[in-house]
């Protein structure tokens, strides 16, 4: 219970801080939502009317006070452009973002962890070198390049998968069919990080005394690696997986653009360029909550992986 209260307090403080900073930051960028909305032909009167309707004619600090009061009641304002509740609009793309992040990470874990283990086990061998070089490429290649290249290969040439990464009202299999390429690209680019991280975590553990003892006692190599070493190397790997998940919820913008997928990242980008203040704030709020939640879940997971950590 105590732990829950602590985490809730942490959540509240983080969200409050982030939303406050965002509130003032987006208002500091030059540009005007009224101008964006009304376009090139806007007259000065029309701009003034709209600014007044949106409350943008008041001092920023007053705007902030009003926003904070309403936010306490769960009202995060309406999108300047569409007039719809900002939070609702952001949440409408949460499933798309979560699905992409989840599927991408699943692929990354499935590729990255075994490769990391194999390379750590055979440190200095040709296979280690080869995989590390490939992983370096994976890290160095920009994700939009990988995305476009995969569209050209798998969609245009081979016609295995659609070029559009989001299905439109199709069935379950259709959804999966559309998801393969974007999730694959995200997965492969993240897998490179996970491979390298797993490798160094494993190397550290494999050089420890207890592993040497286990080997000396004749414990089979398979058991040494998978049971004794991996379990201890798992905590940093879990950390990077969790952080990457939270990160890709909001930062998979390039993948979303290349594959024409809706998502929170592109939604926030759109909102920033339209100076849709409320939408930016709602987007950042959702991401902040997601990051804090993922970290809380990770805390729990650490305890499961390594009982010493939950005793703390």
């Amino acid at each position: 219970m105590d732990r829950l209260t602590r985490q809730l307090t942490q959540l509240a403080i983080t969200v409050f801080g982030i939303v406050t900073v965002t509130f003032f930051l987006v208002r500091m960028i030059p540009g005007d939502p009224a101008q964006y909305m009304l376009g090139d032909y806007a007259t000065e009167e029309a701009l003034a009317t709209l600014r007044a309707q949106l409350g943008l004619d008041r001092p920023v600090i007053v705007q902030y006070g009003l926003y904070a009061l309403r936010a306490l009641t769960g009202d995060f304002g309406a999108s300047v452009v569409t007039g719809r509740p900002a939070l609702e609009e952001i949440l409408s793309s949460l499933p798309d973002s979560a699905l992409l992040a989840f599927a991408g990470l699943a692929i990354a874990v499935v590729i990255g962890i075994p490769l990391g283990i194999v390379t750590a086990e055979r440190q200095g061998s040709w296979s280690d070198l080869l995989i590390m070089v490939v992983a370096l490429f994976g890290i160095s290649f920009p994700v939009f390049w990988l995305g476009l290249a995969s569209v050209l290969l798998f969609s245009q040439e081979l016609k295995w998968f659609p070029a559009l990464g989001a299905s439109s009202g199709g069935g379950f299999l259709d959804q999966i069919h559309h998801l393969v390429l974007p999730a694959g690209v995200l997965g492969v680019s993240v897998a490179a990080y996970i491979t390298r991280l797993t490798r160094s975590a494993m190397l550290e553990v494999l050089n420890q005394d207890y592993i040497r003892v286990a080997r000396a006692m004749g414990v089979p190599q398979r058991r040494v690696v998978w049971r004794l070493a991996l379990k201890n190397a798992l905590v940093p790997i879990l950390a990077i997986v969790g952080v990457t998940f939270a990160w890709s919820l909001g930062s998979a913008i390039l993948i979303e653009v290349v594959f024409s997928r809706p998502g929170i990242g592109s939604m926030i980008l759109k909102a920033v360029s339209a100076r849709d203040y409320q939408l930016v704030q709602a987007g950042v709020l959702v991401l902040a909550v997601a990051v804090v939640l993922v970290n809380s879940l990770l805390d729990l997971a650490y305890g499961l992986v390594d009982p010493r950590l939950s005793a703390r």
Partner: peptide, 14 residues
Amino acid sequence: RQFGGLLAAGALVA
């Protein structure tokens, strides 16, 4: 296993 991951992701959608 990649396929397994996708199926799991699919279950989330469902």
